[in-house]
Amino acid sequence: MNRIKIAVQKSGRLNEDSLAILKDCGISIDNGKDQLKAQSSNFPLEVLYLRNGDIPQYLRDGVVDIAIIGENVLIEKGQDIGIVEKLGFSKCRVSIAVPKGKKYNSIKDLDGKRIATSYPNTVVEYFKKFNVQPDIHLINGSVEIAPNIGLADAICDIVSSGSTLFKNNLKEVEVMLKSEAVLAVSPNISKENQLLLDKLQFRIKAVLKARKSKYILMNAPNDKIENIIKILPGMRSPTVLPLAEKGWSSIHTVIEKDTFWEVIDELKENGAEGLLVIPIEKLVL
Rank of each mutant, 00 (worst) to 15 (best):
R3T: 14
L59F: 05
N148H: 15
S249F: 02
I155C: 09
E16L: 09
R51G: 10
A154P: 09
K230I: 06
R203M: 07
V98G: 07
S179A: 14
F127L: 03
V8F: 03
W248L: 08
G101K: 11
S213M: 12
V84W: 06
K10T: 15
L110M: 11
N193G: 07
S163K: 15
R211L: 07
I229A: 07
I255K: 04
E281V: 15
R51I: 11
V143P: 07
P56R: 01
I229Y: 09
A38C: 03
S28M: 12
L241W: 03
D24L: 12
L241H: 01
D80R: 03
D157R: 15
K91A: 00
L14G: 01
G112L: 09
I155W: 11
L19K: 00
N131C: 02
I83T: 05
L243W: 01
L87C: 02
A38P: 02
K214G: 02
S118N: 12
G70S: 01
P134E: 04
R3A: 12
L232D: 08
S190Q: 01
I228A: 10
G141R: 05
T117D: 09
S106M: 05
K212G: 09
L275G: 07
L151T: 14
I278S: 05
L87N: 00
K100Y: 00
G274W: 12
G62W: 13
P279R: 04
Q9E: 13
S18A: 15
I115G: 00
H252E: 15
S190D: 03
R13M: 02
R114W: 14
V277M: 03
G78R: 06
